[in-house]
Design a binder for these strands. Structure first.
Lengths: 119, 119
DNA sequence: ATAAAGTGCTATAATTTGTCAAGTGATGAA
DNA sequence: TTCATCACTTGACAAATTATAGCACTTTAT
């Protein structure tokens, strides 16, 4: 569907970000590098199969980097590349919108250094 | 997956926006109200079944409004509600990021009145 | 009048995508 | 030894998205 009408960076960006889990992954990684399973838990329970696909795609796009620390006892970490760090603005915008239009209670999950008074 | 850990507006917002076509729909509507088929074409060819589901969901969330102008010769228009208009910031952020990190050629689709000097 | 194309949808089936559960080979803790 | 963890892979399955067709009607062209 819509292979490439004229090439539009905004459209492309949306295509990337609307993939399931992608924004959650970026948001989790904004806080610092994580391992595979760690990341899966951080995003709210993404299954390994999908997570692998997303991670590969995001790495391909230069949004994150995969670093293998040890091979035999597998130990890897995923970290945002500069292009990924820049997504902070996008997440911030979503954050702002969400708080304004979706907030029903005292929000209880801040991960980017923004403290929220809950109690 | 992750039914409701603690309720987080950011997480919720991401859940809404990452649904396929949602951001495209918002972006198209940011330019002004559109009809059903018109909108389907504007977002790049979403099929009516999915479009209907998205539109219903977005209406439920108060992001857009559906106005029926005439019933028998069907004529309807979808327009962003205030909560939807506020998503402009999110789209802008994505726009900025996309141009910075995804732009490979002179972009050919600006729909929000923001002219970009490419050369 | 007839045909073709457009309106906003809905129904059905097929494909794509995402999910779960389990397994792999290696290490560390008990 | 057995369980748990790590980073995945595999295969069966469910859910989401898709194409295609159609409805009841208007508009435009012929």
């Amino acid at each position: 569907m819509n292979t490439e009408r004229e090439y539009c960076p905004v459209h492309e960006a949306i295509q990337v970000l609307q993939e399931k889990w992608t924004m959650h992954i970026v948001r989790a990684l904004l806080d610092g590098p994580l391992g595979f399973n760690e990341l899966g838990r951080a995003v709210g329970g993404c299954n390994p199969a999908t997570l692998k696909v997303r991670l590969d795609h995001l790495e391909e796009l230069g949004i994150l980097t995969r670093t293998v620390h040890s091979q035999m006892p597998p130990r890897t970490s995923y970290e945002l590349a500069p292009a990924g760090v820049d997504l902070q603005h996008v997440i911030d915008a979503i954050d702002g919108w969400g708080r304004q239009h979706l907030d029903r209670q005292g929000a209880a999950c801040d991960e980017e250094g923004e403290k929220v008074a809950v109690g």
